[in-house]
Design a protein around this nucleic acid. Structure first.
Lengths: 193, 193
DNA sequence: ACCAAAAACGAACGATCGTGCTAGAAAGGT
DNA sequence: ACCTTTCTAGCACGATCGTTCGTTTTTGGT
């Protein structure tokens, strides 16, 4: 990996961490340069514009999320166990301000602002929702879920459960957030069997 | 109502609308002044600081939300009907970018930034969650919900359902968002009976 | 060791940010 | 109709925003 690519990755890593705290729109070339010990112009040269920086942060976060949540789940046995593994890894990232948080806050920030950032968020979400639905579908064909259950509805519902988790855990710092989320998830699974 | 108070309200109304689109942190004295046809300093004089403006916008949005969602629900017969009315009005505000959206995006924005704004968001949410739980509790004593159901868990779950709705409706503009949300809500009610 | 290419820097730009200060316009009670 | 209070505009400030440009340093292949 070339030197330039290495620093680009380092910047993106730091940017993703910052963005999951103060939001993707709150990112600033200046403060990001200060964080990484670079000059503003030196950092800027790696990205052609601020918007490009933001979309690259998003792409970087998606890779992170895939590594931390999706791929580990795919390692679990297909069907219900895989859905459960997905949930567990998803919760785990949420507890430590991982990549999941970035998508939650970014989605809320850009849900009404057309442009490439929003487009990318939409694409990523649809992709991920499809993956979830597919995992659930496999559970149906394995006979672990009711055959008349709706995979897309399950993906939607699970997403709502996770949004509720992020809200309760990060905003309210409720110690019960995880317990409530687990109950909600189990209820979801129970309703599908 | 004095002239000053009238313009203050007008500014807050416009600010709330803008904030529900681009976020509470995205508010700007300058652009807000341009929107309302005032000078920057003339507008600023009504609020002592930007942060004060933001907290006042939040307070204004809470009144709006109470008027549009909570109070109409309280007009419905107690118990399950009231919970259902709450849900209906909640969905209605979400469909037209009302006050509910502001809280969703603001919560995501400030969930990791300590300060008065976050504090106010937490207070408002706890208050509202208590109201929801209380409505549900009444449903229990009316015999419409299982006596061993957990009112706080219900409030948490319903909130998750609504977050899922806002996400699907506003980000993805899914036409099925409302239908999925209704199904999720009915499942929640069914599980409580 | 040389040298082209890549990477980082420093300075500067116009714009806009939030925030004061001061003078004038409007409002409203008398 | 006056006078005090309230409201609004104009102007300026330091800071920071994203971005450009020219120069200097570093890198890595030969």
């Amino acid at each position: 990996m070339s030197k330039g690519e290495a620093t680009r990755q380092a910047v993106l890593d730091r940017a993703a961490a910052t963005a999951s705290r103060i939001g993707l729109a709150g990112l600033t070339i200046g403060s990001l340069a200060a964080d990484t010990g670079m000059s503003k112009s030196g950092l800027f040269a790696h990205f052609q514009s601020k918007e490009s920086l933001q979309t690259q942060v998003l792409a970087y976060a998606r890779e992170l999320f895939s590594d931390q949540v999706v791929r580990p789940a795919l390692a679990a046995p297909r069907g219900k166990a895989r859905v459960r593994a997905l949930f567990e890894h998803w919760v785990a990232t949420g507890k430590e301000g991982g990549a999941g948080c970035l998508f939650v806050s970014a989605s809320a920030e850009y849900d009404d602002q057309p442009g490439p950032i929003r487009d990318q968020l939409v694409r990523d979400h649809l992709d991920f929702a499809d993956s979830v639905a597919q995992m659930f579908r496999t559970g149906i064909s394995e006979g672990q879920f009711r055959p008349d259950a709706d995979p897309d509805q399950f993906a939607h519902d699970l997403h709502g459960v996770m949004l509720g988790f992020f809200h309760a855990h990060r905003l309210l710092a409720e110690s019960v957030a995880e317990a409530r989320t687990r109950r909600a998830f189990e209820n979801l699974l129970a309703a599908a069997k």
